[in-house]
């Protein structure tokens, strides 16, 4: 199959998964690292760039629909920005090989949580219109 078709399909399903609240970022990262052979750190950078326009688009929708709760924004973005630095440093120290193993353990945890999640009213409500993050 030509590469551009594979890229188109993977990115399309990443976008669909993201909009369904399934953690779309994982789809692209898994494709890049487990199938396309891109080193973990490079794949993470690509995934971050990929996320920006999708998040910006969804944020426009959500702001119009008055779905943003402003209270948590300032405190969480402040500590979040500082923690990003720590995360990036840690990623650099670990390097692509160990980082990919840690990432695998992280998605294993998320996968088990998703596979065995309890069907609840929240799940039904979550089926509403939303564009989700990574």
């Amino acid at each position: 199959m030509p590469e551009w078709i594979i890229i188109g399909l993977v990115s399309f399903f990443t976008g669909v998964a993201a909009s369904l609240g399934l953690g779309g970022g994982f789809v692209l990262l898994i494709y890049l690292t487990a199938f396309a052979g891109v080193p973990q750190l490079e794949a993470q950078g690509i995934n971050l760039i990929f996320f920006l326009p999708i998040a910006a688009l969804s944020l426009i929708f959500h702001t119009k629909n008055k779905l943003i709760d402003k209270k948590p924004l300032l405190p969480s973005i402040l500590t979040g920005a500082a923690a990003v630095v720590l995360g990036v440093l840690l990623a650099g120290v670990l390097g692509s090989k160990w980082l990919s193993k840690l990432f695998a353990i992280f998605i294993l945890y998320v996968g088990i949580k998703e596979l065995f999640h309890k069907k609840s009213e929240k799940t039904a409500e979550n089926s509403g219109k939303r564009l989700e993050n990574t």
């Binding site: 994982f26 794949a43 720590l86 840690l90 992280f106 990574t134």
Partner: peptide, 12 residues
């Protein structure tokens, strides 16, 4: 922030 910096995803 830690998850975002470490894995480039997963914050959500």
């Amino acid at each position: 922030g830690l998850l975002n910096g470490l894995f480039g995803s997963g914050g959500g």
